[in-house]
């Protein structure tokens, strides 16, 4: 998959995650009831695990999603690595929170589960973005034209001329 498509995917998935985190952040500060099918959202949100050093986990999640969304706007290696680090750390922390919900709090929050799934997808997209750019050319030989992502059709930048029609 091309980096362009992956950047769009990262941006879209991060936007969905940011939406979920924004909703939970809003309900946290507004003290509003959470729309909840699993029946444990209020319990989870009001538990002591819902805050990290006094900051709501939902707000931290929102910041993380926005950060990863921001990395989708940059092509550089640093942006890709930063996005992947954040997303993978988010997955690990999500697993920890899932264990806490099941084993300690004894309640499940559907929004947290949804966020976990979004984080999984986001981490996959971010890791895929770490793939090296494939250069259409032989090792050690400069590519003809611009660098191309493997599989991306780039007319006119092939190092060899087209096979003439006979």
């Amino acid at each position: 998959m091309s980096d362009r498509r992956l950047r769009v995917a990262v941006g879209a998935i991060a936007a969905v995650g940011a939406g979920i985190a924004a909703y939970l952040t809003y309900t946290h500060f507004a003290h509003e009831a959470i729309v909840c099918a699993t029946g444990g959202c209020e319990t989870v949100q009001s538990s002591k695990y819902a805050e990290l050093a006094g900051i709501p986990v939902a707000l931290l999640g929102l910041a993380a999603y926005v950060f990863v969304l921001g990395t989708a706007f940059f092509r550089g290696e640093l942006a890709r690595a930063a996005g992947a680090v954040t997303a993978v750390a988010g997955v690990l922390f999500g697993v920890y929170l899932l264990v806490v919900q099941l084993a300690v709090i004894g309640a499940l929050c559907q929004w947290c589960l949804a966020s976990d799934l979004v984080l999984d997808a986001l981490a996959v997209a971010c890791i895929l973005r770490l793939n090296p750019d494939w250069v259409c050319g032989l090792p050690g030989r400069p590519a003809f034209g611009r660098r191309s992502t493997f599989g991306e059709k780039t007319e006119g930048d092939h190092p060899w001329p087209p096979i003439p029609r006979t």
Binding site: L52, A84, V88, A89, F93
Partner: peptide, 14 residues
């Protein structure tokens, strides 16, 4: 490096 950084960050969060 990415895996180690993510692991460290997650450990800090835990």
């Amino acid at each position: 490096a990415v895996a180690a950084s993510a692991g460290l960050l997650a450990t800090g969060l835990f």
